[in-house]
């Protein structure tokens, strides 16, 4: 699906995607890490439950919504990975009071 070009020079950043460690690269967005890990979908929609994943990667389409460090509905393409970040694909609408104020 996606492969990293050789000799990029970016350092490794380990994140947890759905509980499994994944070695992303510094400068990756969460969406890039997700795609690099072989996943195309970040969520199931709250409207019909249809699977969706990164589409525009420039913050416009809101299709790549994902849960980051427990905060749901974050745009995966607009947040850069950080060491130890927990990234969880999400299903439907979040419950009340799960975000970060």
């Amino acid at each position: 699906m996606f492969a990293r070009l050789p000799e990029t020079g970016a350092e490794a950043v380990v994140v947890a995607i759905d509980g499994a460690d994944f070695e992303a690269r510094a400068g990756d967005s969460v969406a890039a890490a997700l795609l690099a890990s072989g996943r195309l979908a970040s969520r199931a929609t709250p409207v019909s439950g249809a699977p969706r994943g990164p589409f525009c990667l420039m913050g416009v389409c809101f299709d790549c919504l994902i849960t980051i460090d427990g905060v749901p509905n974050q745009r995966a393409c607009m947040v850069e990975v950080a060491p130890g970040m927990r990234i969880d694909t999400q299903q439907g609408a979040p419950p009340l009071g799960t975000g970060a104020a």
């Binding site: 492969a3 990293r4 070009l5 400068g27 890039a32 525009c56 990667l57 420039m58």
Partner: peptide
């Protein structure tokens, strides 16, 4: 709307920001 359908800008952005290219 299927996962795996992406815009050209998205794929270009992955190349520029992350040196990621499509495979398959």
């Amino acid at each position: 709307t299927l996962p795996g359908v992406m815009t050209a800008g998205a794929v270009q952005g992955l190349l520029k920001s992350s040196a990621l290219v499509p495979a398959g």
